[in-house]
Amino acid sequence: MIGRILAVAGTEFRIALRNRWVLMATLIMVLFALALTLAGSAPTGALGVDMLTIAVASMTTLSVYLSPLLALMISFDSIAGEAERGGLALILSYPVSRAEILLGKFTAHLAALAIAMVIGFGAAGLVTALLGGAGQASLIALLRLVLTSILLGAVFLALGYALSAMSGSSTAAAGLSAGAWLVFVVLFDLGLLGAIVLDGGGVFTQHVFPWLMTANPADALRLWNIGAADSVAVASGLSGATSALPAWAAPASLLLWLPLGFILARLSFGRVEP
């Protein structure tokens, strides 16, 4: 079983390298992370935290947008596209299970994402540390950001496979993935914001809203990184939202979404008749 997963993973990783996906994703991460870090480095003195802490706060927001986007970009075509080209029928005629194919693709795509994240956030972290110094706490915060971003990417890889298996064609899969990104990253937050404004600080804002926010994996990443380090919370100005929740809530959400995404992906892949 491991042999077959690794065989699929090796092939998929080679494809990701050859079609320049790894290169493009890494470039995007490096550019955005550096730009945000350098642009957002002004208010250090006023808040009394080091420059890397500020950088981690800005990059957390970046990760909320980019991790799901990159993950969906690499995963949306993996089932619908292969089914369209006829490759899926052939590979499934071999003694390899659908779960093994999914895990193989996942391993390769996660490795590709991890490379982009580590290099992107790492480069930005290094530049800030050299410019403005970094303490132990801020280094841990950076490490936490990298790991949780990879975890968020993993969740959206699994969701991407599920959407890909649900759509009949690559084009439909691309549309569904774009829709999913909009909902999770933009519309969900807008909806919550609207609800808070209407509620005017009532029961919803105090007791329901924090839980709803945590339930979204993209927001869970934000809460996890901000909640875990007081200094980052100060830097981001979001300390209020995190204090209403127990510390385990955001990590639990992200960690639950991963198997949930996988089950969804496996079930919808199971219904595909290539």
Binding site: T11, R14, I15, R18, N19, R85, G87, V96
Partner: peptide
């Protein structure tokens, strides 16, 4: 049959052999 463009013939066949 359409194989993946980025792979070589040897790589594609090696994958099938492993599977």
């Amino acid at each position: 049959v359409a194989f993946h463009k980025a792979l070589t013939g040897r790589e594609q066949l090696t994958l099938f052999a492993k599977l």
